[in-house]
């Protein structure tokens, strides 16, 4: 459930295990299982496929036969949507925001998670509680004070300012998630390195980071999704229309052309595509990451 802009998947729970393997299938698999799985598959993909179809239809075709395969493929919808909603600039801005947000969150959450998992600081339990509670505050509530602050700090109406807000909003979850990865890395690795005379920094860069890589990829993907899809804060904190990320151009586009659902379809497809490719590229790593994180079972 996407909730607010703070939205991101849950952070790690539970004691994790190292790389998990699928357990061998036991018992026979009933065909009913496949039927149900396929039904769910249809439920997940059906609307997406219809949506893709609608982006290739003419308006009148969509009105008369909304559920059929398009008779002729109107690729021009994509060009029109691209132009009308200025999606090129939107995507470029989104790229900057996503890369900036992901890089920053990885550094911030990386440091914090490492400190919490390894340095045995006092009060880390309290800190976890704080992170949980601070993620449960409704963003709409502090929008105005935050805006005030951003104007004073000259961060208003700049992509960097937006990125900093995303750092603040998305870091707590990323930290909790990453921490649970790091707990699972056996301490022996680091101790061995230290015995070999490696300094703390070298331990960090040569032992901890490589081992936590799946964890970083996971929080990177999750943060990228959150930043890419966020619109409420973006539209508030960016005044200059040439700086708006694609999520907001789509949002306003949808209202501007309610009647032309084919263009909405095309614009939506354009917007989804980059994240889809990113996910497909990372999905194996991502799922490994989730498996080996604290989210992996006991």
């Amino acid at each position: 459930m996407t909730t607010t802009p703070t939205d991101s998947p849950p952070a790690g729970a539970a004691r994790g295990r190292g790389a998990a393997r699928p357990h061998p299938v036991t018992g026979r698999v009933s065909s009913l299982t496949y039927v149900l799985l396929c039904a769910l598959l249809l439920f997940a993909l059906g609307p997406l496929v219809l949506f893709a179809f609608s982006s290739l239809k003419t308006q009148s075709e969509l009105a008369t036969s909304p559920l059929s395969f398009p008779t002729s493929l109107r690729w021009s919808n994509f060009a029109t949507a691209w132009e009308q909603a200025n999606m090129g600039a939107g995507l470029l801005n989104s790229l900057i925001v996503v890369v900036g947000t992901v890089a920053g969150v990885c550094v911030i959450a990386g440091c914090a998670a490492y400190a919490m998992a390894r340095l045995d600081l006092p009060g880390s339990g309290t800190f976890i509680t704080y992170l949980l509670v601070s993620s449960s505050l409704p963003t709409q509530m502090f929008l105005v004070p935050l805006f005030y602050l951003w104007t004073k700090l000259n961060l208003y109406d700049s992509l960097f300012g937006l990125i900093v807000i995303y750092w603040g909003l998305f870091s707590p979850f990323a930290t909790l998630l990453l921490r649970s990865f790091m707990i699972t890395i056996p301490r022996e690795f680091e101790e061995a390195a230290r015995m070999d005379g490696a300094g703390e920094l070298r331990v960090l860069f040569q032992v901890v980071l490589p081992n936590a890589l799946p964890g970083f990829l996971t929080i990177a993907l999750v943060t990228a999704l959150s930043a890419y899809n966020e619109f409420l804060i973006a539209v508030t904190f960016i005044q200059d229309s040439s700086l708006l990320p694609v999520s907001t151009t789509f949002f306003t586009f949808q209202q501007g052309f309610t009647q032309d659902y084919t263009l909405i379809g095309a614009a939506g497809m354009i917007m989804v595509l980059p994240m889809l490719l990113l996910f497909l590229a990372l999905q194996r790593r991502f799922i490994e990451g989730v498996s080996s994180s604290g989210l992996g079972g006991a």
């Binding site: 909603a85 040439s242 209202q255 501007g256």
Partner: peptide, 11 residues
């Protein structure tokens, strides 16, 4: 309101 559609112009 095509308001946003024309963001390019203004941009």
């Amino acid at each position: 309101s095509g308001a946003t559609a024309l963001t390019p112009v203004l941009a």
